[in-house]
Design a binder for these strands. Structure first.
Lengths: 218, 218
DNA sequence: ACATATTTTTAGCTTTGTCTAAATATTTTT
DNA sequence: AAAAATATTTAGACAAAGCTAAAAATATGT
């Protein structure tokens, strides 16, 4: 497999969790499923191009220019994910691989028009925020469902308890990853939560809620 | 510039005009803006892979398998062009470059869903037919507007007379490349044509019509 | 049909991204 | 603080796609 400069930039960006952290050659290699020596080579080149800061043995980080490129890639990736889910009926978990390809298409007009076509969405189907054209965005916050205040809305992105009985319970109650959730009320009396999930009103126990992760949208 | 196998397949396909004609190494090189020696190398590889038939000094053609690949690329290219024009408000002449990139995205589901999303279009914005999923399609026919029978519809794709006065005339009468045209009636008396062009009814002289090329849709 | 012109291929070199194995730095352990 | 373990880089080789220049095959003109 032959990787592009953009792939390296993305890997460095994501390993740094969006902050401009310095990451190790090995970490990049592992993430990209390649060898550390290949990373060293590429990172030298990125450094020459003014995309990354690289000090031998000390790791690598993105320059401001490199971060801009990374943000533009994230923006494209997430917009395409929205497109695939909203317009082409892809499911939550099918989009990543295709978006991974689409994000490399080069056309500023394409991205801007796509954004418009989708109604300027704020988050992707996984609840992650979409950077604006000039690279601004708030970081996604992930919380357990029973830890957020009334009125919070977000997207169900994971479970703490992944035992079979719990997953079966979720299935039976039509709760799935990718569903959007709004916390409507909290009932102290029986320790339960009143939520709206994908247009349905349901009640769930705090017990259940404390095993569901929510990526907060608003 | 580094070209992909798919680019070579497309070039061979288009030079052969969709028929399975044998084309010369030089022709491919010229079309792709590369050197004949590079073409020889790649064509050998395509031959080994069962995509092309190649006899040294005798030119190259596509195998059935190669044609399938070519048709799939054409299908993708044209569907994306429709998408760009219909959904993202690209103009007729801006789509090619972007579609050239998009056609290389690999996902069968993506293409099928895109086709559905667009309402299974039969032709692209240039009036060229879109192959079906299994590679069937009728070749586009290009005619002068005054040579087609009443009832013919198609897309305006070119001019015979490209003088400035003629182009100005077209502009003034809101006739542009990419417009869809339906021939409604012919008037022998004053040698004119009654056409519907982009929802507008207009009359034009045979003189004018004999300088406009139509790609026939139906 | 022969000489000339053109086309196409071959041989060898370049570049880019990758890999392995050895060498060098850095970090951790004792 | 020295030894051992780990991380990182360097050196050298490989594969893919491309190019130039020379050689070989085919086509053309008289």
């Amino acid at each position: 497999m032959t990787l592009s400069e953009e792939d390296y930039i993305k890997a460095i960006y994501h390993l740094g969790k969006g902050e401009n952290t310095t990451v190790s050659t090995n970490a990049v290699a592992e993430k990209m499923d390649t060898k550390p020596s290949s990373v060293t080579d590429m990172v030298k080149k990125l450094s020459e191009k003014g995309v990354a800061n690289y000090k031998p043995y000390k790791g690598v980080s993105l320059t401001e220019y490199g971060q801009k490129i990374a943000l533009a890639l994230v923006r494209k990736h997430r917009l395409w994910e929205v497109f695939l889910v909203e317009k082409l009926d892809f499911s939550w978990d099918e989009v990543h691989e295709v978006a991974e390809q689409l994000e490399h298409i080069k056309s500023e007009k394409l991205v801007d028009q796509l954004d418009k076509h989708l109604g300027f969405p704020q988050v992707d189907p996984h609840g992650d925020p979409i950077p604006s054209k000039n690279g601004e965005f708030k970081k996604a916050v992930k919380r357990l469902l029973n830890d957020v205040p009334i009125g919070t809305s977000g997207i169900c992105v994971g479970v703490k308890d992944s035992s079979v009985p719990f997953l079966k319970f979720l299935d039976k109650n039509k709760i799935a990853l990718g569903d959007s959730i709004l916390v409507m009320d909290k009932e102290e009396f029986d320790e339960s939560l009143h939520i709206k999930i994908k247009e349905n009103d349901i009640h769930i126990s705090n017990q259940i809620a404390s095993n569901l992760y929510l990526k907060i949208t608003e």
